[in-house]
Simulated scan of single mutants.
Amino acid sequence: MSKHHQLEILHRAPAPGAARNAPPLLFVHGAYVGAWCWEDTFLPYFAGLGYDCHALSLVGHAGSAGRERLDLCSIGDYLRDLADVAEKLAAPPVVIGHSLGGYLVQRHARKQPVAGVALLASVPPYGLGGSLAYMGLSAPHLLGALNRFQWHLGPDGLDYALLRELLFSPAMTRERLGAFAARAQPESTLALTELLMPQPWLLMGMPHDVPCLVLGAERDRIIPRADVLATARAWRVDAEFVDIGHALMVDSGWEQVAQRLANWLAVGFGGAR
């Protein structure tokens, strides 16, 4: 697929009087969503702290072009999207990825300049094989729910109890679940298939001069703790865990994740106020 398709990019400038001398932040969403997943939470939160914030929707997602060819979109297409957006920013960004987005961020940082990376409930460098085995053994009913989510027929076709268990904390309200489900979408079958292919060699060769934060979700039913620890080892950092569900950027209590990320950014990239 051509890299010249139109991409949706959400932008939040630093709040007036709060701008920091810090790199821009680039948020990369995971499967089944788009840039909108950051729109009411992380973007205003970090813009309020003085960061220049950007979030892209990958090809075929949300407001970006290519929905009609979504199942033909590859990991390579997504990586080109990420590189195209990052190179147009004023400086190499801190790239913040969730789930599939975290996997893309890790691949991107191996070849492209970045100021830092933050990996939130991220797919590990070797792909989704461990996750599939984990779900198949620990919660086969949720694996079935995830498959149903892939072939999502609209909010009325979802079991909200299963959706909450799969992606969120128990405190997530029915209203917010419905709002999420109404905007969610299928993911590229090709990209998911590529992620299921074992890629153990990608555990090696991470750019260890790049600051990295690895945050796992204690209530994650998709990315097992072992995968979070493996990602942290590959980056030679300690993994941290927050008591929240997999969809941590929209889950009830998302602020605790944002606060931990903000603390990390302030230490490494806070800049002069």
Rank of each mutant, 00 (worst) to 15 (best):
F42G: 01
A35K: 06
G76F: 04
G97V: 03
D40F: 12
Y51I: 05
G216L: 10
R80C: 14
G245Q: 01
L104Y: 00
A262G: 02
Q256D: 07
L163A: 13
F168E: 01
D156Y: 04
V94K: 10
L248N: 11
A31H: 01
L10P: 10
H29K: 04
A179Y: 08
R107L: 15
G30D: 05
A266I: 11
A115R: 15
G245L: 06
S169K: 08
M206P: 13
E240M: 05
A217T: 14
P140L: 06
K111V: 13
R183P: 07
D77W: 01
D84Q: 13
L82M: 01
A121Q: 00
G127P: 06
L70W: 03
L213T: 08
H29L: 01
R110D: 08
Q6G: 08
E187M: 00
A181M: 05
G48W: 01
L56K: 06
L203V: 05
D251M: 06
G97P: 00
A55S: 02
E165D: 15
S122E: 04
P200C: 04
A47I: 01
A133T: 14
A191M: 12
H61G: 03
H152L: 15
L142V: 10
W254R: 00
L120K: 11
A230Q: 15
H141N: 12
R219P: 07
G154S: 00
A171T: 13
